[in-house]
């Protein structure tokens, strides 16, 4: 029931994104779309996924979209009719195949579905004894399929390298005077005061909350990825309220550019230590004498690596974009 309502809202927001031609509005609605998706994930009980979607889709990607808009401009040219045809065919064909496949899909929530029969039981039943964390999602992501997560960190790192190659970083330009806003300066200063006070109030809790999410990932939803994103958004808030230059004095881009690599190397270091101790790559059980403790330390370390890489990459990308748009 709630599912249906949320899906209807989701459809409505997608329709709105397509119909409204101003890019800024589209960005706004995209963030709404992401939260709705996050809510649907919540209703489906996929808390970790919902967490990621809420943090990435609604927060960071909105800001990146805006930063990109600042470079490319706000208006989009209307697409000529004939250019719509090819994408339309691709999309409808995809939709048809998806519908065709849905005829044979296991029923929604079916306990006998193959997904619940084959690999999952071992994760559900044995992970507490084999890996440890009460949050099974963390066990699967960080240990059973830790190599995939390693690859994902690699993806984030590659994105960082790509942005750095294309946009450049550390190319600090001389500060340009902000265009004076139209209207009464006195009022605009007053606005600053309220926002500044609130931001001062919020930034520290955001950063602390990020640390909580980082270290609490074993027990509840969360982990390095979400923590990194939340941490980065705290820094974004600082940069937005106080301007990019003070934020860069706080986190010098030249030094910040090392951290994505450090996070990835930390992750790999855990794997290599386990190789040196005679296990396979990323086998945390051999890290210390007790396998369960080894798993615990290993997961904490790699989650930290993930968090460092993600946060540093996000902040780096934000700086590159913002410098570019000045």
């Amino acid at each position: 029931m709630i599912n249906m309502v949320l899906l209807m809202l989701l459809l409505a927001s997608v329709y709105a994104i397509i119909r409204l031609d101003r890019l800024l509005t589209a960005v706004l609605l995209t963030s709404l779309f992401s939260v709705l998706v996050a809510s649907i994930f919540m209703v489906l009980d996929a808390v970790d996924v919902a967490f990621t979607e809420a943090a990435v889709g609604a927060g960071v990607s909105t800001i990146f979209f805006l930063a990109a808009l600042a470079i490319v401009g706000r208006q989009c040219k209307p697409t000529p009719r004939r250019k719509i045809i090819a994408p339309l065919i691709v999309v409808s064909a995809t939709g048809c195949v998806l519908l065709y496949a849905s005829l044979d899909m296991p029923r929604f929530g079916e306990p006998l579905a193959p997904v619940h029969q084959h690999v999952a039981p071992r994760y559900l039943n044995d992970s507490a004894a084999e890996v440890g964390p009460p949050n099974i999602v963390t066990s699967v992501l960080a240990s059973y399929r830790g190599y995939d997560t390693f690859g994902e960190v690699g993806v984030v790192f590659t994105a960082f390298i790509g942005v750095l190659m294309l946009l450049g970083a550390g190319t600090r330009r001389t500060s340009i005077e902000p265009p004076t806003p139209t209207g009464a300066p006195k009022e605009s200063m007053r606005k600053k005061v309220v926002l500044k006070e609130v931001a001062d109030l919020v930034i520290a809790p955001v950063l602390i909350f990020a640390l909580y999410v980082q270290w609490h990932g074993d027990f509840g939803p969360g982990g390095g990825f979400q923590a990194g994103v939340i941490f980065a958004s705290g820094i974004f808030l600082y940069a937005l309220i106080y301007g990019i230059e003070p934020a860069q004095r706080l986190l010098p881009p030249r030094r910040l550019a090392y951290f994505p690599a450090i996070g990835l190397l930390l992750y790999a270091a855990v794997g290599i230590i386990s190789m040196l101790r005679g296990g396979n790559f990323l086998n945390y059980s051999v890290l210390v004498n007790d396998p369960l403790h080894g798993q615990h330390y290993g997961i904490l370390a790699i989650e930290l690596g993930v968090g460092i890489t993600v946060a540093a990459v996000m902040i780096n990308i934000f700086f590159s974009f913002s410098e570019r748009s000045l």
Partner: peptide, 12 residues
Amino acid sequence: IHALAQTVNVAG
């Protein structure tokens, strides 16, 4: 919301 209202006001 406050900031928004201010912006609207400043925008005239």
